[in-house]
Amino acid sequence: MNRRLYNIFIVLICLLVWMILIEKPTYLNAAVGASLAIGAVWFNSRVLHHDRESEVFRLQPLIFPFYILYLLLQIYIAGIQTIGKIITGNIHPDIVDIETQLENDLYICFLANSITLTPGTVTIDKEGQKLKVLWLNCETKDKEKAGEMIKGKFEKILRKG
């Protein structure tokens, strides 16, 4: 994915948000939204960023619907388990270090945000490929077992992309 394709993608997303907010899909509204989106992207890339980040990450669009469905399922499962822990009250919060095999920085960001979004775990810090995770029910401090229990299938799905 090169720079121009990336900019076109951003323009399309801005246009979609504009059309949702304006609620009347006419050609005039679409033209105004498209020109505003192009102006915003041009301003952002020329004036604000000075082309500092020349690296554009590669994304696989096909895995994302599956990933989001799996994420929603995991959020509900972990939420119900957390309600059980609130009622019984036996919790052992602690901090564990885990390691990931992903190399792309964007995918590590997705993985960390998914860990934070799932109830019961919060990512605190990242250094390279090591993540520091605060865990509600800390059963083991071993790096591999804890990583297996926290990351689950998220990492496997992301590694395919």
């Binding site: 959020i75 972990a78 939420g79 109830p119 919060v122 509600l136």
Partner: peptide, 12 residues
């Protein structure tokens, strides 16, 4: 423990 429980139930 509070932040782990509260914010997450809030997401759900």
């Amino acid at each position: 423990a509070r932040i782990l429980v509260a914010s997450k139930i809030d997401t759900v």
